[in-house]
Amino acid sequence: MNSEWQTFLAQQQASIADDQVSDFGAPQDELSAADSATVIADLSHQGIISATGSDTESFLQGQFTNDVQQVTPEQSQLTAYCSPKGRMLASMRLFRRGDHYCLTLPRPLLEPTLKRLRMFVLRSNVTLEDASDALARFGIAGPDAETLLGAHLPGLPAAVDEVVQHQALTVIRIPGTQARFEIHGPAEQLIELWQALHNGGAIPVGYPAWSWLDIIAGVPSLDTDTTDAFVPQMANLHSLGGISFKKGCYTGQEVVARMHYLGTLKRRMYRAHVNLDTPPAPGEPLYSADSESSAGKVVLAQPAPNGGVDLLAVLQISSAEAGPIHLGQPNGPQLEFQELPYSVALETG
């Protein structure tokens, strides 16, 4: 975490461990705020890989599921990095700041992703670095997010994935059931902006509340226990604009394309609620009541504002439709399915 930014957050009564803010002293109130109010959240739990050099665009184009040529200073994208077998090693957002391509992904996956990408640079003019602590970043979301942020940074991005550069600040509109933005930039300027938004009524919240907003938006985030577990379509990445089926070859492309053109999706990501006090870990197995073999895995789970746990899970579609689905074991707590804010295409090609 950027040291200046960390000092500021600590002064705001943030509980910080392992580059992640757990809360600002009132976890349950923060979850409630995320559900109904406008909130601001530190995003240091996201690591950043910086890519520079004259061959960067062509190099990244051969690595990721989306069309890197469409990434401009005004346009970002969700994308995935896959194994040769087409399984996601990481999902991330790709955007530009000046001549830098920036990849945001969960901190635990940054080092293995960076190490693997560097293996394929070879003689290309590409430099890959861990830039997580070079800048600071935070998010804002909620019913007044656009009004509050727009009062200080006019001309905000209007559509999801769009980017606006405000001098040294990069503002990205990201998926959400209400307006939601990421802001990246120097700590000094972000401190000033955070204070202005807080004074305007935005409520500081920790990582669990922001992660809950990802769940409500149906946006997957991989962990060390779910990396290399899902083909991108299983995590609904095609429905979130995270896959290009028109670009050239990339690692894992044959498997991803085959599923698109020749098959019907047999697993997809669902949103659900379960009556538990503690969220299950990513990768926790899910079962049909009549089967001892796993029907799927938890992708992401967080406490829900009104009690229990909300989660995203990749499941066999046939099992989810037959129901019920149980967590942890065939007679474990039962999932209550909830609507995603987007439709998922099952017929491919």
Results as ranks from 00 to 15, higher is better:
144 D>G: 06
75 Q>W: 09
204 P>A: 01
230 F>T: 00
245 F>V: 03
76 S>Y: 08
140 I>R: 13
36 S>N: 14
122 L>C: 12
26 A>D: 15
324 P>Q: 03
206 G>Q: 06
240 L>G: 08
312 L>I: 00
99 D>V: 03
292 E>Y: 03
164 V>A: 08
177 T>D: 01
58 S>Q: 12
2 N>H: 09
292 E>L: 02
89 L>F: 12
91 S>M: 10
62 G>H: 08
230 F>Q: 03
96 R>H: 14
184 H>K: 07
249 C>A: 09
347 E>C: 09
22 S>H: 01
253 Q>W: 09
185 G>D: 02
298 V>Q: 05
113 T>S: 15
207 Y>T: 05
301 A>E: 00
30 E>G: 00
346 L>I: 03
66 N>L: 00
295 A>S: 15
214 D>S: 15
316 Q>K: 10
155 G>E: 00
11 Q>K: 15
265 L>R: 14
26 A>S: 14
146 E>F: 03
248 G>D: 12
317 I>G: 02
147 T>Q: 14
303 P>M: 05
309 V>P: 11
116 R>Y: 11
304 A>R: 00
347 E>G: 11
42 D>N: 00
283 G>F: 01
80 A>N: 10
251 T>L: 15
165 Q>H: 07
206 G>T: 01
103 L>D: 10
236 N>G: 06
172 I>Q: 10
254 E>S: 14
180 R>Y: 07
11 Q>H: 15
72 T>A: 14
133 D>Q: 14
269 M>I: 04
12 Q>G: 09
102 C>V: 02
84 P>E: 01
259 M>H: 13
180 R>P: 14
308 G>K: 01
292 E>R: 04
104 T>I: 00
238 H>Y: 10
132 S>Q: 01
256 V>G: 13
30 E>N: 03
295 A>Y: 06
58 S>G: 11
9 L>P: 12
178 Q>D: 10
167 Q>K: 04
178 Q>C: 07
93 R>W: 06
297 K>L: 15
25 G>M: 00
242 G>N: 11
32 S>N: 10
166 H>F: 04
12 Q>A: 11
254 E>T: 10
322 A>S: 06
118 R>K: 15
256 V>A: 13
344 V>R: 06
337 F>H: 08
251 T>S: 14
249 C>N: 13
281 A>W: 05
180 R>E: 08
40 I>Y: 10
131 A>E: 08
85 K>Y: 05
339 E>M: 03
322 A>M: 05
329 Q>T: 03
96 R>L: 09
305 P>H: 04
195 Q>F: 01
48 I>G: 07
315 L>E: 05
86 G>E: 07
65 T>N: 10
253 Q>F: 09
93 R>P: 14
192 E>R: 05
142 G>S: 04
46 Q>N: 14
80 A>S: 14
224 T>L: 15
275 N>F: 00
215 I>Q: 02
64 F>H: 11
288 S>L: 05
51 A>H: 12
52 T>G: 08
337 F>M: 06
338 Q>W: 01
344 V>A: 03
163 V>R: 08
124 S>F: 06
135 L>S: 12
249 C>Y: 13
98 G>R: 13
114 L>G: 14
91 S>N: 15
